[in-house]
Amino acid sequence: MAIRPGGELATRPLHFIWIADCSGSMSTDGKIQALNNAIREALPLMRSVADDNPNAEVLVRALRFSGGAEWHVKPTPIGEFKWTDLRAHGQTDLGYALNMVAEELRIPPMSERALPPVLVLISDGQPSDDYIGGLEALMHEPWGKKAVRIAIAIGEDADTDVLQQFIGHPDLKPLQANNPEALVRHIKWVSTAVLKSASSPASQAAGVPLLTHMPLPALPPASDPTLVDDVW
């Protein structure tokens, strides 16, 4: 048979980005360590979901923000991804972080053939810089607008209005985690159910109300919420 026409075949990249608040308040009551533990615990599940869909190339990275922001882990195939503990100190420069994410979602370096990226913002407080400017920069990028944006609020001091603005969809609310058990549950849901939906999305009709956001599976209920006290 003749040689297959065309260039190199490739699966579609799926960029999964943790955007982690590492401000000083995250160091209280074990919040930052609970986040480190939750992400580390979810990694095997994430790999398993990725293995189930070989047509998506899952690339994971992490951005930490406090006074400024920096890439904690560069884009890494999920099979090779290892979690290094985050440490917390300083301010909550969310705007700075969102500007950095926006830069990475430009075309290029992003490919037009990518799958919708997943952005997971985790925060326990209120932004200390111009977060609106950062959000505008993110939403200015086509991939910023099309990204699946999830937010996890740690503790009751988290500014859920800001997180809701980041999500930008009235039917999706920030996930509230007031204890380590809830945080693990939310992180696992994002790492599995959301990743699975994003890695094999069906086409969505543009201009049809309510269909312009990728449908997400329901969050599983807590095993028994009465057994776990709120600590944050």
């Binding site: 919708p116 999305p201 009709a205 543009a206 201009g207 049809v208 312009t212």
Partner: peptide, 12 residues
């Protein structure tokens, strides 16, 4: 505009 599996459609 047609990225992220969003597409114009006969149902639009």
């Amino acid at each position: 505009r047609l990225i992220a599996n969003e597409t114009t459609s006969l149902c639009s």
